[in-house]
Design a protein around this nucleic acid. Structure first.
Lengths: 130, 130
DNA sequence: GTAACTGCAAAATATTTGCATCCTT
DNA sequence: AAGGATGCAAATATTTTGCAGTTAC
């Protein structure tokens, strides 16, 4: 389903590097703030969409309505990037990270699952100190 | 925190009735399609926001980026409408409903939770038959 | 050389705000 | 009558699309 002919470009590599050097999930806004001088905002949209389409990252939509992207774990293949652990979004520092806890899902009969989006919002430990 | 002086109006009652007569969660678009002739789209935005603010409904953000609203269970009070069960969004019929399964959350030390958003996307049983 | 990728402008969507008016209390 | 709620227009975001120019392969 997914593998179009993709090309390796500088811009994409920069975004990949950004993922590599960033803890937790990443939003369009964050990429733009970081790399916006080197590339157009539209390009960022397109790169993020492409990455998701290709299974390189998965998307987590926050209860703030913002889309965050995180590199997929090894387990992800191109058509299934299920992600049955919980993400935590800190309202203060606006980071999204994975919690250890993972969920075993008990879907009712005849239900079929294509995507999981588990998100808890609140204050993370480091922000809670202050 | 929440109780402003609210007034009882026809428009709001219509939206409430719509919730009552609809299974599962409801999006702005659905309300507008249903009641758009009787009220302005902006009014719908404001009513839905107000309802959420007042704890009358809670918001679930789909991985499609769309906000859905569902009437709160009895357990909800004004400041805490935690909703630790899983919602299921059907990509075909675009309904959102609650699954029975609820999740016990095991938050790491010093984490503080303000909101839960558990959503599985896929095909529901009735759509899966066809 | 071909087709993917990018940048810019513009279009399409989605949501919010200002303000005059209407309606609940 | 005071101020919350609504409608309309306009302002803000946010995301997508068209197309020409550029670059990877």
């Amino acid at each position: 389903m997914s593998n179009k002919n993709r090309r390796h470009t500088k811009t994409q590599q920069m975004v990949l590097d950004y993922f590599e050097n960033t803890d937790g999930a990443v939003s369009h806004e964050m990429v733009e703030k970081s790399l916006g001088d080197s590339m157009n905002r539209v390009t960022i949209y397109r790169i993020l969409n492409r990455f998701e389409e290709d299974g390189i990252v998965h998307k987590i939509v926050g209860d703030d309505g913002v889309s965050y992207y995180a590199r997929c774990e090894s387990a992800c293949d191109h058509d299934h990037h299920h992600d049955n652990h919980i993400h935590f979004r800190c309202e203060k520092c606006n980071s999204i990270n994975c919690l250890e806890q993972s969920i075993s899902i008990d879907l009712p009969k005849n239900y079929q699952m294509t995507n999981i989006n588990f998100l808890i919002t609140g204050i993370c430990a480091s922000c809670n100190k202050e």
